[in-house]
Every structure is written in C-alpha cells, then in structure tokens.
Lab assay of single mutants.
Amino acid sequence: PKDEAKKKVKEAIKRGDEETAKRIAKKYNLDWDDAKREADEER
C-alpha cells in the first residue's frame, strides 16, 4: 500500500539514506518531493 511505502520513504530520508528513499518512491510511483517535504517537516 502507498501509505506504507511513503512511511518507508520518509524513514529512509530521516536516516539520511536518500538512495533507498528514491528507489522506494520510484517503485511505488510516489511523489519524491512530496515525501521529502513531509519528512523534513517531521524532523
């Protein structure tokens, strides 16, 4: 599900692992900028 994928993307971003985050986002066709902004807001 997309929500689960987005959570994984945000967790990867918070760990500083943007490569993984981008790969997950691409795989699930998520909006990378959107997920990154959300992760930054939660930090």
Rank of each mutant, 00 (worst) to 15 (best):
P1L: 14
P1T: 14
P1I: 14
P1Q: 14
P1W: 14
K2M: 14
K2E: 13
K2R: 13
K2W: 13
D3L: 11
D3S: 12
D3K: 09
D3N: 11
D3Q: 12
D3P: 04
D3W: 13
E4R: 11
E4C: 13
E4N: 09
E4H: 10
A5S: 04
A5D: 02
A5N: 04
A5V: 08
A5Q: 06
A5P: 05
A5C: 06
A5G: 09
A5M: 10
A5R: 03
K6T: 06
K6W: 14
K7W: 07
K7Y: 07
K7R: 14
K7D: 07
K7T: 11
K7M: 11
K7H: 10
K8I: 11
K8Y: 07
K8T: 08
K8M: 13
V9M: 13
V9P: 00
K10F: 12
K10A: 09
K10Q: 12
E11S: 05
E11M: 05
E11F: 00
A12I: 03
A12K: 02
A12F: 08
A12L: 15
A12E: 03
I13G: 00
I13W: 04
I13P: 01
K14A: 12
K14T: 08
K14L: 15
R15K: 09
R15T: 05
R15H: 08
R15E: 06
G16P: 01
G16W: 02
G16F: 03
D17I: 01
D17P: 00
D17A: 03
D17Q: 04
D17F: 05
D17E: 06
D17V: 00
D17C: 09
D17S: 02
E18K: 05
E18D: 08
E18N: 09
E18C: 15
E19A: 10
E19C: 11
E19L: 08
E19N: 06
E19D: 10
E19F: 05
T20H: 08
T20R: 06
T20F: 09
T20M: 12
A21Q: 00
A21T: 00
A21D: 01
A21S: 05
K22M: 10
K22G: 01
K22L: 08
K22N: 03
R23D: 10
R23Q: 12
I24H: 01
I24C: 08
I24Y: 00
I24F: 01
A25W: 00
A25P: 00
A25F: 00
A25K: 02
A25G: 01
K26S: 08
K26P: 13
K26M: 08
K26Y: 04
K26V: 07
K26H: 08
K27Y: 11
K27V: 06
K27M: 14
Y28A: 15
Y28W: 04
Y28I: 15
Y28N: 15
N29I: 02
N29H: 11
L30D: 05
L30V: 15
L30P: 04
L30N: 02
L30W: 05
D31L: 02
D31K: 01
D31Q: 03
D31R: 00
W32Y: 15
W32L: 08
W32D: 02
W32P: 01
W32C: 06
W32F: 14
D33I: 08
D33G: 05
D33H: 05
D33P: 04
D33Q: 09
D33C: 14
D33M: 08
D33S: 06
D33Y: 06
D33W: 06
D34K: 09
D34S: 11
D34P: 02
A35D: 02
A35Q: 06
A35I: 15
A35K: 02
K36R: 08
K36F: 10
K36C: 09
K36Y: 10
K36M: 12
K36T: 07
K36W: 13
K36I: 13
R37A: 12
R37E: 07
R37G: 06
R37D: 07
R37I: 06
R37V: 07
E38A: 09
E38K: 04
E38L: 08
E38R: 03
E38M: 07
A39K: 03
A39C: 08
A39H: 04
A39Y: 11
A39T: 07
D40T: 11
D40N: 10
D40L: 14
D40V: 08
D40R: 08
E41A: 13
E41Q: 12
E41W: 10
E41D: 10
E41P: 06
E41M: 13
E42S: 07
E42D: 10
R43I: 14
R43D: 11
R43A: 14
R43G: 13
R43L: 14
